[in-house]
C-alpha cells in the first residue's frame, strides 16, 4: 500500500487511525466513542472543508539531496517536488508520492507509517519530527525536509544512526533481573511503579531527541534517549538493587546526566511526548542522593 499512489479514501482512513494510535493507552470505550465521532464527521463533512478545493492544491516539498556515489549529487542540494495534496496527507505520504511518481532514487527510511517503528524521524521545517506523524496541513508551505541534523548523511534523507545505537547500547537497554519471586511465573510490577515508568517506555528509538540536542552534537554525551532508557530501568522496582546501582554508575559517569543543560530541546521534539528533561533531572537528583550516602 505504501508504495502505491494512495487513493484518497483509504489514505484518509489510515491517517485518522494514526492519530488514535498515538494514544494506545486509551480504554476501549472512549476509543470507540472517538471512532464513532470520526465516522460521523466523515459522513457529514464536505470533502473540501479544510482548505477550499483540496483536489487542486499541490504542496511544494524542498527535499535535501545527496549521494556520494552519483556524480551530480556529491554536492548537497535541495530538489523541489510538487505533490497533489489530499486531505489528511502526512509528510511521509508526500515523500512516498514524490518517490513513486517523480524520482525513484529519492531515499528515506520508513516502515510502519504509524509512529511506532521510529524509522522516519526527519528535520521538517526546522524541527525534528516523524514524517508519518506530521500532517502537511499543520505546516507552513513550502515544506523543507532535511535529514536529521548532527548525524552524518549517508544518502538523501538517510543518516548514519550508528552513534545513536551505540549510546543506547551503553546503558544496557534490557531488563536484567532473571529471578522470579515466590514461585510466581512472572515478575509482577505494582500499578504505581508501572505508572512511574510509563512515559519512559514509549521510546521508539527514532533519534529525534539526540538530533535536537546541542550538547550531544559536539561530543560523547550519552544523550536523552539513552538516559531515558536508563531511567526506565533504574525506576523499575523489579530490578535488583545491585543492578540499579550499576545503572546509576553508568549515567553518573562524566558523559552522563551532568552534561544535560536543560535546554528542553529533546522534550520539545519527542514525537512520543516523553518528558525527557524531567527524567534526566530526576536521575541527577537520584545520583546526588545515592552518593551523599557514602559521605
Amino acid at each position: 500500500m505504501s508504495t502505491n499512489v494512495p487513493d484518497t479514501d483509504t489514505e484518509n482512513h489510515a491517517d485518522t487511525d494514526t492519530e488514535n494510535h498515538a494514544d494506545t493507552d486509551a480504554q476501549p470505550a472512549p476509543q470507540q466513542r472517538r471512532l464513532a465521532k470520526k465516522r460521523e464527521r466523515r459522513e457529514h463533512a464536505p470533502q473540501s472543508e479544510t482548505n477550499g478545493d483540496t483536489d487542486q492544491q499541490t504542496v511544494e516539498l524542498k527535499v535535501f539531496r545527496y549521494d556520494p556515489e552519483v556524480e551530480g549529487k556529491r554536492e548537497p542540494r535541495f530538489d523541489d517536488f510538487h505533490v497533489p495534496f489530499t486531505k489528511g496527507m502526512t509528510v511521509l505520504d508526500a515523500l512516498i508520492y514524490a518517490r513513486d511518481t517523480f524520482d525513484s532514487s529519492l531515499t528515506f527510511r520508513h516502515s510502519c507509517r504509524q509512529a511506532i517503528c521510529g524509522s522516519d524521524a526527519l528535520f521538517i521545517n526546522g524541527a525534528q519530527r516523524l514524517g508519518c506523524q506530521t500532517q502537511l496541513s499543520d505546516l507552513e508551505w513550502p515544506v523543507r525536509i532535511e535529514p536529521l541534523p548532527h548525524q552524518e548523511v549517508v544518502k538523501d534523507l538517510v543518516v548514519d544512526m550508528e552513534h545513536f545505537y551505540e549510546q543506547m547500547d551503553a546503558v544496557d537497554p534490557y531488563f536484567k533481573d532473571e529471578d522470579v519471586p515466590d514461585g510466581l511465573e512472572e515478575q509482577r510490577q505494582d500499578r504505581e511503579n508501572r505508572e512511574k515508568i510509563k512515559m519512559s517506555t514509549r521510546c521508539i528509538w527514532c533519534g529525534a531527541c539526540m538530533s535536537s540536542c546541542n550538547i550531544a552534537a559536539g561530543g560523547n554525551y550519552l544523550g536523552p534517549a539513552a538516559i531515558n532508557k536508563a531511567y526506565r530501568f533504574v525506576m523499575d522496582e523489579r530490578e535488583d538493587g545491585d543492578v540499579t546501582q550499576e545503572r546509576l554508575e553508568t549515567i553518573e559517569a562524566e558523559e552522563g546526566v551532568w552534561r544535560c543543560q536543560t535546554q528542553f530541546s529533546c522534550t520539545d521534539v519527542c514525537p512520543k511526548d516523553i518528558p525527557l528533561t524531567e527524567h534526566i533531572q530526576e536521575l541527577k537528583r537520584e545520583a546526588v542522593k545515592n552518593n551523599l550516602k557514602f559521605w
Partner: peptide
Amino acid sequence: MAEHYSSFSSEDTRWLL
C-alpha cells in the same frame, strides 16, 4: 569505592555545589 564517591572533583559534588 567510598574514596571515589567523596572525591571533591567528582561531577555530582560540583553539580550540587
